Simulated scan of single mutants.
Amino acid sequence: MSAVHSLPHTVEAASADLVPSRYAVRIGEIDVMVISDGVLPIGFETMSTNVDPAGRTAWLDNRLLPETFDWAVNVVVIRSGEQTILVDSGLGGEFEGFPRAGQLVKRLQAAGIALDALTDIVLTHLHMDHVGGLLGAGVKEKLRPDVRIHVAAAELAFWEAPDFSRTVMPSPIPDVLRATAKQFLADYRSRIQAFDDEYQVAPGVMARRTGGHTPGHCVVRVTSGGDALTFAGDALFPVAFDHPDWQNGFEHDPEEAVNVRLRLFRDLAATGELLVATHLSFPSVGRVAVDGDAFRWVPGYWDY
């Protein structure tokens, strides 16, 4: 794993950011940059809805974590040939109560990546912390008129009449998710290119529908020169390595989400390829190892 210099790295003079907000790796001939959109405070009970309180407390205590802590929000920018691809767009700044998220536009700019340089956008699913960054003031106008937005057809169909009957979210969230998806579809429908199960976005960049978290949830796999990296979106959260069977309240099909996690972990452990996910601590670049009946997160060594 080596740092990439072909994607711009600029010095942020007098920046208010106290930690880095981007990290780049090279997958064969393809550049991948992980960019932090910030963090979201979420109570852990929502991330472990089928677990008794004692089990939840034990996991938190073992990691010296409080009941509510900050979950990373990561997106990636991929450059393959002449295409520059944004995968997910973070939360955006339109939602009250999340002052430390919604940093994408600022951090793309700091990385030297202009909105009008994006040829493609892949959305793993249409939850607010994945599409919200496209809904901010002036964002749509700065994107190229011919930008292609790739979303699984099953995801588009789901949000026409979304079913939250199996989710366990804080009471205001479902209505916000509905409204956000509706706004996104109204603003961008003409630019959306739907795919069924798999779609090659660019040479070496494949989007694949997994379902589970939402019916059209997808992952993006980058392969080149014998190297590979998978961006897993919301297929997994940090606790999933120890307890892949623990469900979170944002999963629309909890049992299938567990099956998706297990398949993904087994595949990643077998290939040894890099993993990045939305809610793993930034920069979220590492690998998966088998650990008895569970799995182990192996963080990558930073190259700097």
Rank of each mutant, 00 (worst) to 15 (best):
H5S: 13
D17F: 12
L18E: 12
S21L: 10
Y23I: 00
V25T: 12
V25E: 05
V25D: 06
G38S: 12
V39W: 09
T46D: 03
M47D: 00
V51F: 06
P53K: 07
T57I: 10
W59Y: 10
N62P: 03
T68K: 01
T68P: 00
N74I: 10
V75E: 06
V76K: 00
V77K: 03
I78R: 00
R79P: 03
Q83H: 14
T84C: 15
I85K: 02
V87W: 01
G93M: 05
F95T: 12
F95W: 13
E96P: 12
G102H: 03
K106F: 10
K106T: 15
A111L: 04
G112K: 07
L115N: 06
L115D: 02
I121Y: 06
M128V: 12
H130T: 12
G132H: 01
L134G: 02
V139C: 08
K142D: 13
D146K: 05
P162K: 03
V168I: 09
D175A: 15
R178K: 14
T180L: 05
A181K: 02
A181D: 05
Q183E: 10
L185W: 01
Q193W: 07
D196W: 04
R208G: 06
T223N: 07
S224C: 09
F231L: 14
A235S: 15
L236I: 10
F237E: 07
P238A: 11
P238D: 04
W246A: 03
W246N: 00
H252W: 04
P254A: 03
E255S: 12
E256H: 15
E256A: 12
A257Q: 01
V258Q: 01
L264K: 02
F265V: 04
H279S: 09
R287L: 05
D291Y: 06
D293R: 12
D293Y: 05
R296P: 02
W297R: 07
V298L: 14
